[in-house]
Every structure is written in structure tokens, then in C-alpha cells.
Design a protein around this nucleic acid. Structure first.
Length: 576
RNA sequence: GCGCCCUUAGCUCAGCCGGAUAGAGCGUCUGACUACGAAUCAGAAGGUCGCAGGUUCGAAUCCUGCAGGGCGCGCCA
């Protein structure tokens, strides 16, 4: 509708210029928006204000001229076109046009609000936690974030691939192995020194015990090197399984688990991916040697300082591997790569962007920085100690509050805002908890549909979708919605229709801004609008036409609520 | 010191491709269950949008400077 109006208004302005009634050098960009205040109608444009100065006219005069013309051109679509304030032109749509959204939603179902397929292939890489320990709550947020962004982009029309980068190479893996080894020896009753910078979490002991139970004391005699090499793989596998289990348990699946080790392994030509990546940068002329190390001149691309790729001792930095990794991504044909990193890595963004640009893909990397999560319980900060390894893991949190509440709380806030997560509140099944507020609206609609089928509202055998399918509401019935404007019932119906019509725009904006929280805000808004409709309008009334019209409206609300929640990865229960 | 993010109601936050009287939840105060789920709804009170300039017909929104808070600045990963 917005596009239609924009086009019609633009044509109107053009014709006014053509017959000389409006003196403008060029046609202004027509901006059509939804007024905040519903009394201003469904749509509003500010063209008169924008063109006033260059046309040398008073805004309201231009508006009057345009409005007169638009009343002709929009006959049948618009019920009223008015001038308001300093020169806005407000368009109130005809009621049948407004009510038509119900038919569209019920026809399109889950694909309502979907964008045209763009053919664009986007990769979203997220979580990518080091496989040396359990996920913490921050990882949980980034998992929810990446997954939701992927869902939203898919709905908006892109093709999306989800990827997890496994940092299974590097010194943290050695420290990890040494930590397990020390715990293992302790279990064997052997005096062992715990590594200075080792991982002190109790999960290390659990892993060591698993090995001890399965393989006994046979590794006591082995050299530290052999023992740790063996333990590294055992422990790595255990942690990787944990990661996969927890993530899939919250409904987050990855298309690719990309192992960093593959970048260090020589291919058929005996060359590693890291070396190939470095060679590409060298050919492009961005490398130099200094102090025995190999440097990347990232300052050419706005980084604060140049970065080392190959250390003086001959080993590669993490960054070198990451460059090879990103080179590989673009080799795989992605049009856009989105990396989601924790706030603690934001200092790394510029060099990565520099590397991607140097590889010949400027602008094709987008790094989203997810802020952290602060845990509370009844308003008290939950303390966690890195030193002792005492912490609430993400798995603990999921066990306690459930997937829906966890995902919803993580996504409710904008990405660049830290989340204060109150465990007690997330568990609370009350009005204070927004996730239940939205889900309740959905369950309530399902209950109405069960009622409408003639069954008891609690009858679990009723197939809600089938009942919805059977509701016949054509233009004649839908015309009853909002037919009594000015009454509480009429306004409630119209308000709900308008709110439903906003959904496609919300999806588009959320996709463009990579902002799942817009869906959460919208879902709460829609739920509130529905609750208002519910209080003012009896749905299951005797008059069959009005009943079907309201049932169809409720059904459309159900579909959109479920879709909004679905894009957040939150379920829409039929009863609670 | 440099870089990024944040600063809106008592609290937690939306609103930010510039628009009309700045919104929601919680908390406080009033009301509404003999109708489809009260996990709900209706209403009241509550704000110099951190400060100062600038751009504009118009700024919470864009630009600059300043102040306060968070995070990051390794030949670690």
C-alpha cells in the first residue's frame, strides 16, 4: 500500500508540475509514513512541506492542491484525504481496503510478510565459542541473536547459511589438554601441578573422570606430551558434543561447523590455507617483514596499527588463520558475510575489515557486536569468578528458565544494549513477564477457536488450524469490521487491522537493521492490541456474519503472532 | 591517550532512513470477572530526551564539541 501511495502521489506531483501549477525544478522524493496518532489516518505524506521552499509557496496551499487532486485519483482506495498541521496530507483508507489484510494473511499464512527472493547468499557466522569449555550466557545471547537474524533475513528474502567456526587449533587447546591431564593425574592419586593459566572449571574434572573411568590409570606412565595429545582429542570431542547438544536443544542448528585445523593442514599441493591467504595479501602488496615477523599493513584500510601474521618464532597468529578463514568464505561464493562477535572482541573489527578489503572483497563483511549479559536473581547480581571457574553456564540457565524465556529475554533488547537478565523474572509466569504476555494472546486466540468449533475450550482434541481453515469470511463479512467507528468495538477492530498490516514493514526493517528486537517490540504491541480487541469485542457472537468476521480477524492475529515469535525462535503454544 | 558502544519517566527500556501532543512494561494510585482464558483490560500521576552549539520550515533522531558510564587497545586466542 505504501508503494502504491508513493507512486500515485509522485505521479500527482509530476502532473501538477507539468501543467505549471507547481513550480519545481525536480520531483521531490515522496515520503509516505504511518502517522503515530491513528486519528491522523492510515498514511501521511510530507511532500507539501518538503517542496514549499523551492516552489515558493505556503505548505498548506500546496497540500490543498495535492489533496484535491488525490481525492480523484484515490477514489475507492481512500475514504478521506485531509490536510493537517503545518501541511501534512493524511490519507484514511477505505474500510474494505483496511480489512483486506485479514484475507491476505489467511491466504499467505506463514509467508505473510515475506520479502521477494533476493537471490543473495548470506552467511551468518555466530557463537564460534572456543571448544574448551561450556557455553556461558553471553554465548547464549549470541546464539539467539545469530539464529534470529538468520531467520529474519530468510523471511526477508535472502538465502542464509549458518556457520560455527571451531577454534580447535592454537595454544588454548594445549592449555585445555594440560588442565585435563592434571585433573586426571589427581584422580589417579598422582601428585600433579595444575597449569598456571589452566582452566579451573569443575567441568574439567568431569572430563578427566570420564577418561579415567573409561581408560583407567594407563596414562600415568605416558610422557606428558603423549598423554596431553590423547586427552586433547578426548576432551575436545566431549566439549564439541556439549556445544552441539545445548545449541540444538534451543533450536539453533548450524549448516557448517568449520574447523580451524583445516586451515593449518596442507592440501594436495602441500600448501596450507593460511599460507595461501598470506600469499594473496603478499601479491596484493600489503605485507612486509620487520623484527623477524611478517606484518600486514592494515593501516592502509584505517586500522590503528599494522598487525603481525607470522611471528618471529615462525608460527602464525590467530589473525592469520582468520584471514584464511574469511578468504575461504568468499571462495564459497557468499555475497555478504555477517560475523557476530561478543563485545569483548570489538577491537578486532577494523583489522578484519581491512583484511577482507585487502583480499578484494571490500564492504562484504559486516560485523555485529553483541553486548554482554548480566545475570541477576531477584535483583541481585549473580557473581561469577573466572579464577575459580565458578559460573552459571548457559545450559544451567536454559534448564532453569526454559528455551522460550531465555531466547525472548536475549532478543528483547537492541543488540548494542547489554541485557540484564533476571532469572527469577524469566521464570515467573505472570504479567511481569513479556514472553508469557505474548504467548498468552496466542493461546487465548486458540482457545476462542476451540470455542467456536462448538467444543469445550479445554478440549485438547480440537485441531485449531482446521477450525481456522473452516471459517468463511469474505469481503461481505469483513466489511463488518470497524463498521461502527467511534465505538470502542469499532476502534478496537480497526486498530487490530492496522497493527496486522504493519508486520511486513517490521520484518523488512528488522532485516535491514539486523534487529530482532523490533520483532519482540512488535509482538508485544500486537498482543496488547489483540487483548484490547478481545475486551471490547465478543468474538463468538450469535450473528454468523459478524462472528466469522471477528474469528477471521482473530485467526489472522494468531498467524502473525506465531510468525513474529517464530522469527525470534520462540514457540507459540496453543494452551498454557 | 586512542577506538567502539551507551546516556529518554522513580526503575528497565522502545522510539533514531528528521515530522504533528516523546511511548511501553514495572512500580504508585483508581476502577472492571453471571460473556469466548483476569497470565487480561480501562484510567490517573510521572519527562529541560546527559550538556552546549550547528544544519533544517521542523531535531530524542543528523553534525561538532564537552561530561558521565561500559568495553577494547598483545609477535594471546
Amino acid at each position: 500500500m505504501r508503494d502504491t501511495l508513493t507512486a500515485v502521489i509522485t505521479e500527482t506531483v509530476e502532473s501538477l508540475i507539468a501543467d505549471g501549477r507547481l513550480r519545481l525544478a525536480s520531483v521531490p522524493d515522496v515520503h509516505v509514513e504511518r502517522p503515530r496518532d491513528p486519528s491522523h489516518g492510515d498514511w501521511s505524506t510530507n511532500v507539501a512541506l518538503v517542496s514549499a521552499k523551492s516552489a515558493g509557496m505556503v505548505p498548506r496551499d500546496i497540500a490543498a492542491m495535492l489533496a484535491a487532486e488525490l481525492r480523484q485519483r484515490l477514489a475507492g482506495v481512500a475514504e478521506a484525504i485531509e490536510i493537517a498541521g503545518p501541511g501534512f496530507i493524511n490519507v484514511r483508507l477505505a474500510r474494505d481496503v483496511v480489512a483486506d489484510v485479514v484475507t491476505r494473511i489467511r491466504d499467505e499464512g506463514d509467508s505473510f510478510g515475506a520479502g521477494e527472493r533476493t537471490g543473495k547468499l548470506v552467511q551468518v557466522e555466530f557463537v564460534s565459542a572456543n571448544p574448551v569449555g561450556p557455553l556461558h550466557v553471553g554465548h547464549g545471547r549470541w546464539a539467539a541473536l545469530g539464529d534470529s537474524i538468520a531467520r529474519i533475513l530468510e523471511h526477508a528474502g535472502d538465502d542464509v547459511q549458518r556457520e560455527f567456526y571451531v577454534n580447535d587449533a592454537g595454544v588454548q587447546m594445549d592449555i585445555f589438554a594440560a588442565s585435563v591431564s592434571a585433573r586426571y593425574l589427581e584422580l589417579c592419586g598422582v601428585e600433579a601441578e595444575f597449569p598456571e593459566d589452566g582452566y579451573r572449571g569443575t567441568y574439567i574434572i568431569d572430563i578427566a573422570r570420564e577418561i579415567f573411568d573409561a581408560e583407567g590409570t594407563c596414562w600415568i606412565e605416558a610422557t606428558a606430551e603423549n598423554r596431553e595429545a590423547h586427552f586433547k582429542e578426548q576432551a575436545y570431542t566431549a566439549v564439541l558434543e556439549h556445544l552441539k547438544r545445548v545449541l540444538s536443544g534451543m533450536g539453533v542448528g548450524f549448516d557448517v561447523w568449520f574447523s580451524e585445523r583445516t586451515l593449518h593442514a596442507a592440501g594436495a599441493d602441500g600448501v596450507t590455507a593460511i599460507e595461501r591467504g598470506i600469499a594473496r595479501l603478499r601479491e596484493a602488496g600489503y605485507l612486509y617483514e620487520q623484527d623477524g615477523a611478517l606484518w600486514f599493513r592494515s593501516t592502509d584500510f584505517g586500522d590503528d596499527k599494522d598487525r603481525v601474521l607470522k611471528k618471529a618464532d615462525g608460527s602464525y597468529t590467530y589473525f592469520a588463520a582468520d584471514i584464511a578463514y574469511h578468504a575461504d568464505k568468499y571462495d564459497r561464493g557468499f555475497d555478504l558475510v555477517i560475523d557476530i562477535w561478543g563485545a569483548d572482541h570489538h577491537g578486532y573489527v577494523k583489522r578484519m575489515e581491512a583484511a577482507v578489503a585487502a583480499l578484494g572483497h571490500p564492504g562484504k563483511l559486516e560485523v555485529i557486536i553483541g553486548q554482554l549479559v548480566n545475570l541477576f536473581r531477584n535483583g541481585e547480581v549473580v557473581r561469577m569468578s573466572k579464577r575459580t571457574g565458578e559460573m552459571v553456564t548457559f545450559e544451567d540457565l536454559l534448564d532453569e528458565v526454559g528455551v522460550d524465556a531465555a531466547r525472548y529475554f536475549f532478543l528483547r533488547r537492541s543488540t548494542d544494549q547489554p541485557v540484564d537478565f533476571d532469572i527469577a523474572l524469566a521464570k515467573e509466569r505472570s504479567s511481569e513477564n513479556p514472553v508469557y504476555y505474548v504467548q498468552y494472546a496466542h493461546a487465548r486466540i486458540c482457545s476462542i477457536l476451540r470455542k467456536a468449533s462448538g467444543a469445550d475450550t479445554a478440549d485438547e482434541s480440537v485441531d485449531v488450524a482446521a477450525v481456522a481453515e473452516g471459517i468463511a469470511a469474505g469481503p461481505a463479512e469483513l466489511a463488518l469490521l470497524g463498521s461502527e467507528p467511534g465505538t470502542l468495538a469499532g476502534e478496537a477492530e480497526l486498530g487490530l487491522l492496522r497493527k496486522l498490516a504493519e508486520f511486513p514493514e517490521v520484518v523488512a526493517i528488522a532485516a535491514r537493521q539486523r534487529a530482532p528486537h523490533k520483532l519482540a517490540t512488535y509482538a508485544e504491541d500486537l498482543a496488547a492490541t489483540f487483548h484490547g480487541f478481545y475486551t471490547h469485542c465478543q468474538v463468538v457472537v450469535d450473528d454468523p456474519a459478524l462472528r466469522n468476521a471477528r474469528l477471521a480477524l482473530a485467526d489472522a492475529s494468531r498467524i502473525v503472532l506465531a510468525r513474529a515469535l517464530g522469527l525470534l525462535g520462540v514457540t507459540a503454544p496453543e494452551r498454557m
